[in-house]
């Protein structure tokens, strides 16, 4: 199977953050993994040592994946072995994301995010210690 070549005239990426990768060229295997606890509080009071991935089952629970064992034979004929893109503009890539110009055999990406909203109830004065 002849591979295709990606031809990109111009690409502009503003920001790559939190273990993101901009890859030009071919790769045989990509694996990305990111996990995050995003905590929003009614009052902006945070401590630097807060948060434990071990405490929440969302970071441990197995994610079932379909096995890649389908009895399918793929025959690809490259009548034009080029992928042409004139211009790409990406504002940002974040949290173990990949921007790649080129070919890959296998890609496996995993993301686990825990959102927490923390509000202090206004009705009970005992619970309003955060309210100033």
């Amino acid at each position: 199977m002849l591979q295709r070549t990606s031809i990109v005239d111009h690409i502009r990426i503003n920001t790559l953050s939190f273990s993101s990768i901009f890859e030009i060229g071919d790769v045989s295997y990509i694996q990305g993994f990111s996990r995050a606890i995003a905590n929003q509080r009614q009052k902006p009071l945070f401590r630097s040592d807060e948060g434990s991935f071990r405490r929440y089952p969302i970071f441990r629970e197995p994610i079932p994946l379909p096995s890649i064992d389908e009895a399918v034979t793929m025959e690809v004929t490259q009548l034009n072995p080029g992928i042409k893109v004139h211009d790409i503009d990406v504002l940002g890539a974040s949290s173990s994301s990949i921007v790649q110009l080129g070919n890959t055999k296998k890609i496996f990406m995993e993301s686990r995010i825990k959102h927490i909203r923390h509000v202090t109830s206004n009705g009970n004065p005992q619970n309003s210690d955060v309210n100033s």
Binding site: G32, S34, V90, A93, S94, S95, V99, Q100, E110, S111
Partner: peptide
């Protein structure tokens, strides 16, 4: 944006 283990 490309975020949280996404791929472009």
């Amino acid at each position: 944006g490309v975020s949280s283990s996404s791929i472009l």
